[in-house]
Design a protein around this nucleic acid. Structure first.
Lengths: 152, 152
DNA sequence: CACATTTGGTCACAAATGTAACTATCCATT
DNA sequence: AATGGATAGTTACATTTGTGACCAAATGTG
């Protein structure tokens, strides 16, 4: 009977690794700042792009819009970000980090980079292949799913 | 000011790719069988190992024990698996797939393998590096987190 | 200009997940 | 054998996440 080695199955492997990395990464910024993952993503996105709408954050970081909405509110209540109505389109709000938010961002970024550097160093030269492969993987998943679905 | 390119940041990349792959993979078995991810994992684990305790399934597939408990009950109600008390240890139950469960497993496995094969083919020879890197990554995450935590 | 349709964002509700407490059993020590 | 600590599994509860309805503003169409 045909069997599947689950522990060697790519989707399963990816999930395990991603969860483990996220989990450990959270232990880098979590204890000091008590941020959830969605909050961290909003912070990181705004830190990188300075001003952005909630919609754009969601698109860029692949988060559901309610998730973004909640993270934004949480950060706002913490006074880490501010919103102001957009001039061009009054449905949307322009989000920016406050001084407090920028300061938190500045504290976390070096830790995040150090964590990543450590991972990449431990991986060695293969790291480049990994990053390459992840990029290609993401681009082709949808194609692969459609194709194997057609065949069934 | 130091910035982080979120879209190039390893933990973030892993999450996006893993989510995308899981999502697309679900479209392979979901429409035909209406399984949740935890249910699929229990099914796949039992299909591979024939008989196993809930605890062992959780350990092997990295799922929380309540998640396993619920998936097991769902599959039991669907008559896809059966439980019987263990002889050696009466706290645990031995889980096995029923004929119905095996039949579903047999239907899904080829699709799963085809999906994976397609991904690996599209990746080409690099695929091996990816699998290698994932393995190493999983082994060393905890070390990397601890180390970068010490430094902070 | 009206009208329908789309879009950014929020909210109420439902589903999924984690946490902690609990039961029953096992095992070690006395 | 009796007691105390660990372990498998379930359940109740809290937290997180997704879904669908909704509002207000934008855009498109006649």
């Amino acid at each position: 009977m045909a069997k599947l080695q689950l522990e060697a199955f790519l989707p399963y492997r990816l999930n395990r690794v991603a969860a483990a990395v996220s989990q450990e990464f959270r232990s880098v910024y979590g204890p000091h700042h008590d941020l959830t993952i969605p909050e961290w993503r909003v912070l990181a996105t705004l830190g990188q792009f300075e001003a952005m709408s909630a919609k754009a954050i969601g698109r860029h970081s692949a988060m559901h819009k309610t998730k973004v909405s909640r993270a934004v509110r949480a950060l706002e209540e913490r006074r880490w970000l501010r919103r102001r109505p957009s001039e061009e389109d009054r449905r949307e709000e322009v989000l920016t980090l406050t001084v407090l938010g920028v300061s938190a961002y500045r504290q976390i970024i070096p830790k995040a980079l150090a964590f990543e550097r450590r991972l990449l160093d431990l991986l060695g030269p293969e790291a480049e292949f990994l990053l390459e492969a992840l990029t290609r993987l993401e681009m082709m998943v949808k194609v692969a799913a459609k194709a194997s679905d057609d065949k069934s």
